[in-house]
Design a protein around this nucleic acid. Structure first.
Lengths: 178, 178
DNA sequence: AGCTACATGTAACGAGTTACATGATTAT
DNA sequence: ATAATCATGTAACTCGTTACATGTAGCT
């Protein structure tokens, strides 16, 4: 149910169209909650139906009309109630590890190259995050409470990528032996 | 599609009933691929229908009959083909971070307590993993290729939990300031 | 008498993915 | 010309969760 809550949290700051939300999710929100354009549109429909958000059609010149969504009081209440409930750590489902478990069926080089590919992907992502960190959060102690919260989600992304890079390095070293 | 492949990989070593597979998933496989009993039974049905696995009914005394599944040649081919395809890193969807983003709506103590709860959960899980590591993998360099692969999934679990604990500590420190 | 383990499923629903569908404007 | 961006959706399908359904054996 957390996609609905992620959208409500995002709409707490300002109004978004479905398209704007999707861009926001593609850039920033994906560090902690990935969603496709189709999922976002569907969820917006459901949220509007139950009165958690309201929309207004904005006519634009030279561009298609857009539906601007804002959170309602009811939506804010739904979000607050959810915040008070405990959340469990999310389920882990990592394809690369399934491949590692089945690795003996293919030549060793296949799995080593796949791990190397992942190492590169995570290294690339880490450098993107570190750039964002330097640009937007040069001094974490100077941040407001809200900014600190935002910074923490980025820090989680950084930790996660760093952890993967270390694992890939260890894995390549261990499997390359002998 | 990776649940099917995880089941095929597990059946590569020996035969399992649906119930046995579920126990295996609950104990070991959950480090890298979480699945419920219902999902496993459904997937077994699908895999048998397409000929990737075959079953045999075992009559037992004093216990219900069970269906023992084994992987077929076709199933092994499906698994090999999948191993040769590249896999992308999995999507991140972490409720705790959504709560952090929306934290300003509730008293600060709510989010601090929630992070503390997660810190405890991850600390507990880490100690379970470390015990398994000491018991089953005291000397990683002495392991066979297959055992190394198995060990690497455990290492990933250990890294992941450690990384979360560090993040929780940092988050509590940063949000407690002032 | 009640709980846990063994053993297999069906049904309904919610969430995530992929493909299809439309159409204008702006940049190369 | 054609690709990218803006903008919103429907439809079909697969995957994940929750509830329901049934029944035996062994332990406390």
């Amino acid at each position: 149910m957390a996609l609905a809550h992620t959208i409500l949290a995002t709409l707490g700051d300002k109004s978004y169209s479905g398209y704007d939300l999707w861009k926001e999710f593609s850039q920033t929100t994906k560090y902690y909650w990935q969603a496709s354009q189709q999922q976002i549109y569907r969820e917006l429909g459901k949220l509007e139906k139950k009165g958690a958000i309201a929309s207004e059609i904005i006519h634009q010149e030279g561009r298609p009309d857009k539906k601007l969504y804002r959170i309602t009081e009811k939506g804010t209440e739904i979000l607050k109630t959810w915040l008070l409930e405990p959340a469990e750590p999310m389920a882990i489902r990592e394809e690369l590890l399934v491949k590692v478990i089945a690795a003996k069926l293919v030549p060793k080089s296949v799995i080593l190259q796949e791990i190397e590919r992942h190492r590169q992907i995570h290294t690339q992502q880490l450098s993107v995050y570190k750039e964002i960190e330097q640009e937007n959060f040069p001094d974490p102690t100077e941040l407001s409470f809200e900014e600190k919260c935002c910074y923490l989600t980025l820090r989680c992304g950084i930790r996660c990528e760093s952890s993967w890079i270390t694992w890939c390095n260890d894995a390549i070293a261990l499997l390359s032996e002998e």
